[in-house]
Design a protein around this nucleic acid. Structure first.
Lengths: 187, 187
DNA sequence: ATCATCCTATACAGATTAGTATAATCGTAG
DNA sequence: CTACGATTATACTAATCTGTATAGGATGAT
C-alpha cells in the first residue's frame, strides 16, 4: 500500500505540469494513477479541490526543502541571501523538478475571484515575503524592492525553463541575482 | 464598417487575456464581438488558427510600437538599451495594455508539439534576440547573457503585473534592468 | 464464515465545447 | 427591380468533460 491519495496527488501534479491543468481530464489522471474516478472523488470532492491540494503540496514541498537547505548549510543572514539562488538552481535542475505550480495555475485561471487563482497569487506573495524576510535579516536597506526583483528573476527563470527545458535560464538568473544582492548590500 | 475580422481579433485578444484561452469559448467570442460563428469560421478556419492570429497580431503590435519608440526617440546604441525598460513600462502601464500573449499561451499549451506553444516559444526567443541585438550594438561583452537576464526580468514583471494589476513590479524590474545594464557596460 | 470497509468496473446524466448545415436577411451594384 | 455577396439566425452533430449511481470484488478482523 503506497497510499492512493498520495499517488493521485503526484500523478495529477505531473500531468498538470506536462499537459496543462485544464487540458488534463479526471479520467486521464485516474487512468495513469491506476485507480478509478470513484476513489478520486472520495479523497477529493471535486477537480478544483484536487488542483488546490496539488498546489498546496507542491508549494509546501518547495518551501520545506529550501528552508531546510538554508538553515542547515548557512549561518549568517547575508550568506543565506547570497546562496538562495544556488539552491533554487539545484531545485530547478533536479530531475524530479515538476515545475512551480502557482506560475502555471495563475495563467490558466486568470479570474481574480477564482479560488485557484487566489491560492496561487497568495503563494507567489508568500515566496516574495520569504525573500523579503531574508533581505531584512541581512540588513538590506530596500528589502522589499530587492525581494520583488529577485522574485521576478525567479518567476521569469522558471517560466523560461518550463518553456524550453535546459535553456540555462537559471544560470543567468543566478548571476543577475548575485549582482543585485551585492549591489544592495553596499548601501 | 470597422472590419469584422479585426473586431473578432481584438475581442478574442481581450477575452483570452481576461478569461484565459482554453476557458474562452467560440460562442462567447462571437457574442461579445456582435457576430456569429459562421463569420468567425469564415475568417479563421478553426479556433487554433484564431489563437495563432491573435498571438501574431499582439506580438507584431508590440514589436512595432517598441521599435518605433526606440528609433525615433534615441540615437546612440547605449541609450537605446538604457531606455528600453522605460518604454516597456510605458507599454505595460498603458490603459489598453492587453497582456503579453506568448507568456500566457505557453503556459496554457505546454506540449512542445503544439503549434500554439511553438509560436509563443518562437516569439519569446525573437524578443530575446531583439534585446541581444541592442546589447551587441552597445558593445556589451556578454550580450547574450545580458539579453537573457533582461528578458527574464521582462517576463517575470509581466507575469507579476498580470497576476496583480498595478503591483508596481515593472518599476522594480526597471531599476534592476538599469543596474544590470550599467554593470555590463563597465566591462 | 460473516461482515464491514475499501476499491474496482462500468454505465450514465448533464453540461459544454468545436465545428457544420441550412435557410433567411440585408445592402448594394448593375 | 434584380441578382449577388456577405452576414445572420438557428438548429444540429459529435466529442469531451465533470460528477454520480449502482453493482460487484477483494481483504482483514472477529
Amino acid at each position: 500500500m503506497t497510499g492512493l491519495r498520495e499517488k493521485i496527488l503526484t500523478t495529477a501534479s505531473n500531468l498538470f505540469q506536462t499537459q496543462g491543468i485544464n487540458s488534463t481530464g479526471v479520467d486521464t489522471i485516474v487512468a495513469v494513477a491506476g485507480t478509478t474516478k470513484m476513489t478520486l472523488y472520495k479523497y477529493f470532492g471535486s477537480k478544483e479541490v484536487l488542483i488546490l491540494e496539488v498546489l498546496k503540496q507542491g508549494h509546501q514541498d518547495f518551501q520545506n526543502w529550501l528552508n531546510d537547505k538554508l538553515s542547515t548549510n548557512t549561518k549568517q543572514p547575508t550568506e543565506k541571501l547570497q546562496k538562495l539562488f544556488d539552491y533554487i538552481e539545484e531545485w530547478v535542475t533536479s530531475p524530479d523538478f515538476h515545475g512551480v505550480g502557482f506560475i502555471k495555475a495563475s495563467a490558466e485561471f486568470p479570474k481574480e475571484d477564482n479560488p485557484v487563482h487566489q491560492l496561487s497569487s497568495q503563494q507567489s506573495q508568500q515566496f516574495k515575503q520569504y525573500i523579503h524576510h531574508l533581505a531584512t535579516e541581512a540588513n538590506i536597506k530596500d528589502a522589499e524592492g530587492l525581494a520583488l526583483q529577485l522574485s521576478l528573476l525567479f518567476e521569469g527563470a522558471v517560466q523560461a525553463e518550463q518553456m524550453k527545458r535546459g535553456s540555462g535560464a537559471i544560470k543567468y538568473a543566478k548571476t543577475a541575482a548575485k549582482f543585485l544582492i551585492d549591489g544592495a548590500l553596499k548601501h
